[in-house]
């Protein structure tokens, strides 16, 4: 079937099989930041934003995303400037192998848009579904806390 997908503001006209998942279609379109790790909705690596909300693209039919705004990490760093979340991750060493980072970054972006001054507990809860095997999570949590603090957020412990 033919489909129009709006990815990062660009409209793609694609031919898909009706059963195809969004993850497969996005990777086929060249959005390689969308990562396949578990392929059964248990690791968060394939997270993309659909109308600003994080969803797992490995178990979302591509057809369901038609008519919605899809966002991947490719949209974040514009004209050479990193997104503050990305900058903060580099400072705290939050990206080791980097494989989980796109999913992590998008979930964080959605969290901060909904709740600009989250507590550490709220951060941990929001990112509970984004697995990482390298960092032990602490440097990633520090990245978000630093960012919140920089923006004048509370997070006083």
């Amino acid at each position: 079937m033919k489909l129009e997908l709006n990815v990062n503001g660009k409209v793609h006209s694609v031919d898909i099989n009706p059963g195809e998942m969004l993850l497969d279609v996005l990777r086929r379109l060249g959005y390689k930041s969308v990562r396949r790790s578990c392929d059964n909705a248990s690791c968060g690596n394939c997270t993309v934003l659909v109308d600003g909300k994080p969803i797992l693209s490995c178990t979302t039919f591509a057809a369901r995303a038609a008519g919605h705004k899809i966002e991947t990490v490719e949209s974040l760093a514009e004209e050479g400037n990193l997104h503050p979340i990305q900058e903060s991750l580099l400072e705290t060493g939050g990206a080791q192998c980097g494989f989980c980072i796109p999913g992590f970054t998008l979930t964080t972006k959605a969290l901060l848009e909904e709740n600009p001054e989250p507590t550490e507990e709220e951060i941990r809860e929001a990112l509970n579904g984004n697995l990482c095997r390298c960092t032990g999570y602490e440097s990633q949590i520090r990245a978000i806390l630093n960012l919140v603090k920089k923006r004048g957020g509370l997070s006083d412990d």
């Binding site: 390689k32 990490v73 991750l89 580099l90 990206a95 494989f99 980072i101 970054t105």
Partner: peptide, 16 residues
């Protein structure tokens, strides 16, 4: 210092 491959990793470049 920041990782030499850091920007590629956080911007989701096709590196794997």
């Amino acid at each position: 210092v920041k990782k030499v491959d850091g920007v590629a990793l956080v911007t989701g470049q096709p590196v794997y």
